[in-house]
C-alpha cells in the first residue's frame, strides 16, 4: 500500500468503514468525524487519505498522529505527507483576479454538464426541462441566486440546503463554495460563515463534514490550485484546473465553482468595485 498524503483535519481515533465505492471508502470515527480514503485521481483534501487501492483497506483503522494504524500495525506519516488544507489570505479583488474569474465563468457556461447549477451563470433563462423535479430544483436554485445577488447569503443557503441530486445534494456543494469564497472575501467575518453553516447543517454526516471544513476554510487541493491559477492570467492553467475540478463527484466540483463565481461577484458588489486594488 502506498500512502501519498493525509489531510491535516483528520481527527485522531478509531474509524470504521461506512461506505465503499470503486475508488474510495468513507470511514466514520469519534464524534462522527469522517475520513475519506481516496485515490490520487481524487486528490488531497482536509479529511482525505490519498492512497493506492483505498477499497482494499480493512473495515477498521485508526489514526493517531503521526501514524495510521491498519490492523494494529502502524504506518508512520512523514511531515511532507501531511496535506495542509487551510486557505491562504489572498487579495481577491484585483483586476487580474477579476479577469480570471470572468474566464472561469465563460468556461463553466460552455463546458459544465447540463445537470449542474452552471445555468445560473447565464444571463438568459435556462431551457425548460422535461422533468418537473428538475424544474423545481432549478426554481430553488434561482431563488437562491437572487438572494445571493441581494447579498442575503443566509437566505440563499436556506433555499439550497439539501436540495438537488447527489450523495451530497448539489445545493450543499453550492453552499460549500459560498463558504470557501467568504473565507477569501471576508476573512474576518466568521459570524456570517457560522450562521450559514447553522442554516445549512443537516443530518448527513458526509454533508456536515464538508460544510464544517468549508466554514473553517479547509479546502481540498484542487481548490487551492484553482485560486493559485486565478491569481495569474494564464488561461490555459485555469482551464486545466477547472477540468480537474469538474470530475470531482458528479457535478460537485462544478457546482462549487459556480458558487465561487457567483459569491465572488456578490461580494464584489457588496464591498464596492471602488475598493478594487489597483495593481
Amino acid at each position: 500500500m502506498k500512502l501519498y498524503s493525509a489531510g491535516d483535519q483528520i481527527g485522531d481515533g478509531a474509524y470504521r468503514r461506512i461506505a465503499s465505492y470503486d475508488h474510495a471508502s468513507t470511514y466514520i470515527g469519534p464524534s462522527d468525524r469522517l475520513l475519506f480514503a481516496v485515490t490520487p485521481t481524487q486528490g488531497a483534501g482536509p479529511l482525505n487519505l490519498v492512497m493506492d487501492e483505498p477499497d482494499r483497506l480493512p473495515d477498521k483503522l485508526s489514526f493517531r498522529r503521526p501514524c495510521l494504524y491498519l490492523e494494529n500495525s502502524p504506518t508512520p506519516l512523514r511531515p511532507d505527507q501531511l496535506f495542509r488544507s487551510s486557505l491562504p489570505l489572498l487579495s481577491v479583488f484585483t483586476p487580474t483576479f477579476q479577469h480570471s474569474v470572468a474566464f472561469l465563468k465563460q468556461w463553466l457556461l460552455a463546458n459544465a454538464p447540463e445537470e449542474s447549477l452552471a445555468f445560473l451563470l447565464a444571463d438568459t433563462v435556462a431551457s425548460p426541462s422535461r422533468s418537473a423535479a428538475q424544474r423545481f430544483f432549478r426554481k430553488r436554485a434561482m431563488e437562491a441566486h437572487s438572494a445571493l445577488r441581494e447579498g442575503d447569503l443566509e437566505a440563499a443557503a436556506q433555499s439550497l440546503r439539501g436540495c438537488g441530486p447527489g450523495l451530497t445534494p448539489a445545493g450543499d456543494d453550492f453552499i460549500c463554495g459560498m463558504l470557501f469564497t467568504l473565507r477569501l472575501t471576508a476573512p474576518c467575518d466568521l459570524e456570517q460563515s457560522s450562521r450559514i453553516f447553522r442554516v445549512a447543517r443537516g443530518k448527513s454526516p458526509v454533508v456536515n463534514a464538508f460544510l464544517e471544513m468549508a466554514r473553517d476554510g479547509y479546502a481540498f487541493e484542487r481548490f487551492h490550485l484553482l485560486l493559485h491559477a486565478l491569481q495569474g492570467s494564464d488561461t490555459a492553467e485555469i482551464e486545466h484546473i477547472a477540468k480537474q475540478l469538474s470530475v470531482v463527484g458528479a457535478t460537485s466540483g462544478v457546482d462549487l465553482c459556480v458558487a465561487f463565481v457567483l459569491t465572488w461577484e456578490a461580494e464584489l458588489k457588496r464591498v464596492g468595485a471602488s475598493t478594487m486594488d489597483a495593481c
Binding site: R130, S131, A132, A133, Q134, R135, F136, F137, R140, L160, R161, G162, C163, G164, P165, G166, L167, P169, G171, G202, S204
Partner: peptide, 21 residues
C-alpha cells in the same frame, strides 16, 4: 414521464411533492 434520484432531505422531499413525485 419523470424520475428523480435524490437523498431524502427536507428540501428534496418538498421538491418531489411539488413535482408530483
Amino acid at each position: 414521464l419523470d424520475a428523480s434520484v435524490v437523498m431524502g432531505t427536507d428540501t428534496n422531499r418538498s421538491i418531489l411533492k411539488a413535482a408530483g413525485l
